[in-house]
Nucleic acid binder design. Structure first.
Ligand code: FES
Ligand code: FES
Lengths: 152, 152
DNA sequence: CTCAATCCCTACTGATTCAGTATGGTTTCT
DNA sequence: AGAAACCATACTGAATCAGTAGGGATTGAG
């Protein structure tokens, strides 16, 4: 259960896409500039997101990415697991659990599992549609329409 | 919000102590052997646990550690934060949040905060007393009294 | 057709963190 | 005196992370 910059950048990119649902494909370069994400790093994230079936890509000039499903049906959990792999407990798990000799008889393991499960619930209950809404409200109330209106 | 071996080992050690509450001090060596934790690594953890006020130490021969408060009043959150530092969000936080230019107007940040908060709730609601209970039930039902009875 | 834009994919690297070890010191019981 | 135990810091090999590099494949525009 470890969150890295992949999740941060990846979720920002997906929110950006959700804010433009319906319009044509959005290029990685555009997102990279709006969200201040290193361009080549973002490209790698999109490879994973596409392989997970969350976005579809249009290649060639004027190409880009778009959500492959309605934003209401994509959760943060989908995005995070596409980028970081299955959300699993990092302690009392796997080989170490076999090595400690306790097997299933470990009170600590239950705590870690409940914590992971709680995170999974939060992530699974939050959709891109909600986040896009929240983000756009932020940008309307502020004077800095980074997301909705084209800057220069 | 990252959990490392410190938390795993530290919690195991604290559960071990909670199982022997009331008896005299327990040496780090004994815990290290029962829980299969590298001895010198465990010593470091106890330094942190003592500085956090969770355990008290008795120095010298026949010395050891004991819980400094009743097991009912020590939560997993106390243990984890003593060992890993404050449980904080690892994305959209600190310097990076300042650098991204969004400040408070970031929809993603809310998700990470809710996830961290959920973990904090789970950890804060679980006491060592409960875990010691659970662990001792495990050991009674199984034939392997690692925790309660002294092996040889 | 040619070319630029864009996606696609793998490999590499410097920095950081982790897990564990090493070393030596201090305190206290026997 | 000596052993047992806690105290504290420094060091190291391995793994992971964040980001870069380089090239290849596909497509629209002129
Ligand atoms: S599963 Fe091995 S110590 Fe918890
Ligand atoms: S706070 Fe900066 S991107 Fe979320």
């Amino acid at each position: 259960m470890r969150l890295t910059a992949k999740s941060e950048y990846g979720l920002l990119a997906m929110i950006d896409l959700a804010c433009r649902e319906g319009a044509g494909p959005v290029s990685a370069r555009a997102i990279s500039e709006r969200q201040a994400i290193p361009a080549k790093f973002l490209e790698q994230l999109f490879v994973a997101l596409r392989q997970a079936g969350l976005v579809s890509a249009v290649r060639g000039a004027r190409g880009g990415f778009a959500l492959d499903r309605p934003a209401e049906t994509i959760t943060v959990l989908d995005v995070v697991e596409a980028l970081e792999g299955p959300l699993r407990t990092t302690v009392c798990d796997g080989e170490r659990a076999a090595a400690c000799g306790k097997g299933k008889a470990c009170a600590a393991a239950g705590v870690w599992e409940r914590a992971t499960s709680a995170v999974r619930t939060v992530f699974g209950a939050t959709t891109l549609a909600e986040l896009a809404d929240t983000q756009q409200e932020f940008e309307v109330s502020a004077d800095v329409p980074t997301e909705a209106a084209g800057g220069s």
